[in-house]
Design a binder for these strands. Structure first.
Length: 556
RNA sequence: GUCCCAGUAGCUCAGCUGGAUAGAGCAACAGCCUUCUAAGCUGUGGGUCGCAGGUUCGAAUCCUGCCUGGGACGCCA
């Protein structure tokens, strides 16, 4: 717990005590004390709406209640500077600023650990994300999924959860057969033969590259082999190559997984029949039209789903149920799936499956990543996996840069669609918010460098009471909020709160920088305190950027 | 037709476990570089929070209905 939380908790306890003491409510009647941080500084450091909440219980006017509470409040204990009653009955607390002095030493001592908490209590969370079919390259939409998932994992880890990142490889279904057929067609085309691509084949450049690679390594030898033998080879070759490419792209995007889970392993280890047995035992299945159905309508879905088709093969859902059973069997407290918006209709049946398997549905959460609209030359570019017309993650990284792409995707809430302007991103102009944040970090580095060169004292006792300028106090308060912001983002699965935070902190820094001079030989004591403040800001910026997975440059 | 997401400033978006005068970036306008990096700062203008009801001391936030945009509704994956 940091100083800010301590102050807040003490205040809450004192308010509760005052309410009881003023006989406004009994301990049982007392609602949870909520302290909010007012947007307007004129409303103090904390504000409580307790008087309004108690109006009904105490049968008194809110402002009267507020008066009673304030009269019974031990202001010394809660280190309150001033209390005001305002508006319909808000109690505004202005805190003594001495607690702010502890923030700098706390941060400097914690170093790169500042921001970490144990909010998650070591709970085990598995996050499955990206999980793109190995039939082509990663594109723009996948990049958003990857950035979101990765930052979510970073944030969860910082907040004290035990996190495992997993990629589910769909290496067993129809799409892999199509991959084989697509590679075959491209292979013959490479050799100059007029062969049509299959109707539902994969038209991306990646498949052409795979065919070229086969030609380079094997020449035309596969034209003489049996078709089944050839397809089997092309399938495996395509799968292996695609996965290598995907893994490489993700690694360069700074996303690495703890485990890559193969769908095939579910077949091999009879996990699918296990899962089906569990569903049958629970009476969740029935036969109809020569197929086996799953009664998901009993569990909140709008129609029942086929598990085993007439031809005896599984639908996509079936191994996926087995996969989720396997995840839960591994003992995670939470499993989070990050899916594209086009899969949202799949949620009810998966939730049904979790319940049918006998697990609490609360353990299962799906984060839907809304579509990314690509704009280029002022026009919306239609993306299509089928025709392969999409901007690849590789191109994005090369043209825009990893920092900018990651930051941009985690600036917005996952359930808002967003427009990605390729020209703007490419332009590397200062419109790009990542530079704003990085610049704040680089600025501080320059100051600290100057401090060293000019021989200002480094370290030693810092007298934080010398930091009295408004912008200094703003910075200190913001710095103190960081651990709570991270914990909040983790708990609510909203990594963009961290991006929001780092931007706000950068704003305060820039504003401070323009208003006050840090290195002042006329005032060595205050300079010393300000250098310490700058170090604390730099560390916090760097830690936050680390969570987002972007670099914190020392020079720009 | 059913379901999911969105609709907030000219544009892109925050804010949504209800709280005081609704925010930021970009764009527009006016200022700030002999002083630690102007990729910065300061200020101004800009809003029926899609519409209509409801819940209550109080609604951008919760509920209902409707409108608009996007997406999903397969024995594809």
């Amino acid at each position: 717990m940091n100083v800010l939380e301590q102050t807040e908790n003490t205040l809450k306890q004192e308010i509760a005590a005052a309410v009881i003491k003023a006989s406004l409510a009994t301990e049982e009647e007392l609602p949870a004390i909520i302290l909010e941080k007012p947007k307007d500084k004129a409303h103090g450091d904390f504000a409580s709406n307790i008087a309004m909440q108690l109006a009904r219980i105490a049968k008194k006017a809110p402002r009267q209640i507020a008066d009673d509470i304030v009269a019974n409040l031990d202001q010394t204990k809660a280190s309150i500077e001033k209390v005001e009653i305002a508006g319909p009955g808000f109690i505004n607390f202005f805190m003594k600023n001495d607690f702010l002095g502890e923030i700098i030493p706390t941060i400097l001592e914690a170093g790169e650990n500042y921001g970490k908490t144990n909010a998650g209590n070591g709970e085990r969370v598995q996050v499955e994300f990206v999980s793109v079919n190995p039939t082509g390259d990663l594109h723009l939409g996948h990049a958003r999924n990857a950035a979101f998932g990765d930052v979510l994992c970073n944030v969860l880890t910082a907040a004290g959860y035990q996190v495992e990142r997993e990629y589910y490889i769909n290496d067993a279904g129809n799409q892999i057969d199509n991959l084989g057929l697509s590679v075959e067609a491209r292979y013959f085309q490479e050799l100059g033969e007029d062969v049509q691509m299959p109707e539902d084949g994969y038209h991306g450049q990646a498949i052409i590259d795979i065919a070229k690679k086969i030609v380079a390594e094997h020449g035309n030898e596969w034209t003489f082999k049996e078709k089944s033998e050839r397809l089997a080879f092309f399938k495996e070759f395509g799968l292996k190559t695609s996965l290598e490419n995907i893994e490489k792209d993700l690694k360069d995007f700074r996303v690495e997984f703890d485990s890559w889970f193969s769908e095939r392993s579910l077949y091999k280890n009879e996990k699918i029949t296990d899962a089906l047995n569990t569903l049958e035992e629970g009476n969740f299945t029935y036969e109809k039209d020569g197929a086996m159905w799953f009664k998901t309508t009993d569990l909140g879905d709008d129609k029942d789903r086929v598990l085993i088709k007439q031809d005896g093969s599984y639908t996509y859902l079936t191994p996926d149920i087995a996969y989720h059973k396997n995840k839960l069997d591994r003992g995670f407290d939470q499993i989070i799936n990050v899916w594209g918006a086009d899969h949202h209709g799949y949620i009810p049946r998966m939730r049904a499956a979790i319940q049918a398997l006998g697990y609490p549905v609360e353990k299962f959460d799906v984060k839907i990543i809304q579509m990314v609209n690509l704009f280029e030359g002022g026009e919306k570019v239609k993306m299509s996996k089928r025709t392969g017309k999409a901007v690849s993650l590789r191109e994005l990284m090369e043209e825009v840069g990893v920092d900018a792409v990651r930051y941009y995707f985690v600036t917005r809430s996952n359930d808002s669609q967003l427009d990605f302007d390729m020209d703007l991103a490419r332009s590397q102009s200062n419109d790009n918010p990542i530079f704003y944040v990085q610049y704040a970090h680089a600025r501080i580095c320059t100051m600290l460098e100057q401090a060293k060169n000019k021989g200002f004292a480094d370290g030693g006792e810092v007298d934080a009471s010398l930091l009295t300028a408004e912008k200094e106090l703003d910075l200190l308060k913001k710095l103190g909020e960081f651990p709570q912001t991270v914990a909040d983002a983790a708990e609510k699965h909203t990594p963009h709160k961290v991006t929001q935070y780092v931007f706000d902190l950068a704003t305060l820094l820039h504003s401070f920088y323009n208003a006050e001079k840090v290195l002042d030989s006329e005032n060595p004591e205050r300079t010393n305190a300000r250098i310490a403040l700058m170090k604390a800001v730099r560390l916090t910026l760097a830690n936050a950027m680390g969570l987002i997975g972007v670099t914190a440059p020392e020079k720009m």
